[in-house]
Amino acid sequence: MNVFRILGDLSHLLAILILLAKMWRSKSCAGISGKSQVLFALVFSTRYLDLFFVFISLYNLVMKVIYLLCSYITIYMIYGKLRKTYDRENDTFRLEFLLIPVIGLSFLENYDFIPTELLWTFSIYLEAVAILPQLFMISNTGEAETITTHYLFFLGLYRALYLANWIWRYHTEKFYDQIAIISGVVQTIFYCDFFYLYITKVLKGKKLSLP
């Protein structure tokens, strides 16, 4: 495990906790795409099925359980406890436009045609695009709360750090996983435009609003 990997995982965890803290403290999930959160729960649920079959390490197990739990608590907050504050009029991304291509691609490009492997592949492809409903929602409303932008920043930073991790692993272990790498590159690209706005606006104390 290298420093990029650890920082990537911590960045991912921080993003998830920022989102939960925002909802908990403001008692509101305004500006958060429930659809993106459902996709992330689906990503974790299909990828971490190996919790039942293999033990990799205590770290691996604990992190997976935390991600899964937080993800389901987030969904409960949006569609349960805080549903009155959920901005469903602006959360209009059509999920079938993501799910159908992602299912198709996981059947076409995978390492092995067995259920666990197909579900893992599906989760990797889905993660790459799962943030799109959230970004679409921001472009619908034209703005995002600063705390939401911190969430997005750390969520994007996580996969960018994983790219550094994969480069490191390739050079030190000759290990590479082309499905994860290509999807990770695509995933990171989706955040680039946002990173630019975050650095030029949010870090200078301005609210993120689109022209």
Partner: peptide, 10 residues
């Protein structure tokens, strides 16, 4: 096989 089915990354 093993390298592909055991994924240590999150």
């Amino acid at each position: 096989e093993d390298e592909k089915t055991i994924k240590d990354e999150l």
